[in-house]
Design a protein around this nucleic acid. Structure first.
Lengths: 119, 119
DNA sequence: TGAACACATGAACGATTGTTCATGTGTTCA
DNA sequence: TGAACACATGAACAATCGTTCATGTGTTCA
């Protein structure tokens, strides 16, 4: 494999064998970018709070806004992001649209985060 | 518990009993903010890539820069963030400083993220 | 001791992000 | 059918974030 032409430290002092060894074990760049993008979604307290609400039950946009003390517009924008990334799903019920978690993976990931924080 | 004075939808059309029910079940605001902050750290591809390197072995700053094709300064700044949040630790070895993962919790969280993305 | 090296850090700049404001879409019901 | 309601969305603005550049700190070794 070819070394990238980057000036960081002097080429002769870095550890080429270690670099090569780790490079062979690393996952694809694109996969790691996807993981980062996933975590980026969870990296906002508004979105986390929305997900925690949906963790408890299926609710309408209005109720989320009421629960979080935020405007309906702000909530809608965030719901769109969560929906585009397949973390939540929605269904219409009359004039209202009810949101819920897409699958249990979301619960697992947030659960891990909560566990790490609570020590 | 007192309702927050927020105009979102008309007060009489929202579901007060649902709001109250969910509110009682929700974790503390501060805890959720901490979780969001944790995920925010993982929400950057440079940091994820650094963590994946450290996932494989303990390495010096230079080698990380070489592996990621980035400047030493950029890596150092990110290492500081990871270190401040107790996700990695460091030890000096002569002129070099070797970094490694702080604990296995980090592996678990990234593992969950990878699993979710790879479907 | 001082030159060379590995790494850290502060300031600055461009890019991204979350909220607000105004307005648009789709549904209900009198 | 049209008014009222629930929700979505585009533009804009402030705030946050990641990288670069320049420079500072700490260690080694001749």
């Amino acid at each position: 494999m070819v070394y990238q032409e980057v000036e960081c430290c002097e080429q002769f002092t870095v550890h080429p064998e270690i670099v090569e060894e780790v490079r062979a074990l690393m996952p694809q760049e694109e996969l790691l970018a996807d993981v980062a993008d996933l975590f980026k979604i969870f990296g906002d307290s508004t979105r986390i709070r929305i997900l925690m609400v949906l963790f408890e039950r299926e609710v309408c946009v209005c109720d989320i806004a009421q629960l979080l003390g935020m405007t309906q517009s702000a909530i809608s924008h965030q719901l769109r992001i969560l929906r585009d990334n397949h973390l939540i799903k929605s269904r219409r019920a009359g004039k209202q649209i009810l949101y819920s978690l897409a699958d249990d993976h979301v619960k697992t990931i947030i659960g891990q985060g909560l566990e790490h924080v609570q020590e």
